[in-house]
Amino acid sequence: MTRNSLRARLATAVLALALAAPAAAESIIVQSTTSTQNSGLLDVILPQFTAKTGIEVRVVAVGTGQAIKNATNGDGDVLLVHARAAEEKFVADGFGVERFDLMYNDFVVVGPKADPAGVAGTGDVVAALGKIAATTSAFASRGDDSGTHKKERSLWKLAGVDPTSASGAWYRETGSGMGATLNAAAGMGAYTLTDRATWIAFENKADLAIAVEGDTRLFNQYGVILVSPQKHPHVKAKSGQAFIDWLRSDEGQSAIAAFRIDGQQLFFPNAKR
């Protein structure tokens, strides 16, 4: 009998434990991209913000498309992504208050060291993509409507190539995040477009190396937007705005600039004030 009541109490305890969300001080949810999280940037700068303000920042790191969709549903207080046109539409549709430039990094094209398309070392990304298509060298695309994917499509357009006609042949859409796509590219010896931050922090480079970099068209601008409290009254506008203000302040900007992996700076702050 004592054993039964003990068991009953245990069961209740497990239930109570499971159903209780951890009580937290003020916290905000930031919908962001995998690049900011996977590179480790947020792990470094968020504690600085929390130490200063006591506001905990909870990051949901998904593709830009999904991040914007989640923010549209009101499932976040701040949106931090890199797809300018989509961000501006988000604000124009009334879901965001205002878009601010925050920082940039750049994209690079990485590919197998054997370089079957003969593009290594070029500074012209559009010409390089044309060559990859012409030689039907394998190319791994995110294919997930993320910021990187959007960037990649705009570059193909400039090159006058419709790679989707070769979908499944040399053009391979992974439909997954940057890390997974890099893993896939490493596995099949394919070229792919990646943000530099994820690339530098990526641990499984295998036979991949940077093939194309430095083209201004590979510029990757991050924007930050407060989700509209008019649309979603539960949005923690004050804390969210405090976070945006801090990111754009001298302190936040220098924290971004100070973040380095293997001595390389990954993100370049460029908030206009």
Partner: peptide
Amino acid sequence: LETSKGNL
């Protein structure tokens, strides 16, 4: 997450 970071 670690897989996507390449930390296989």
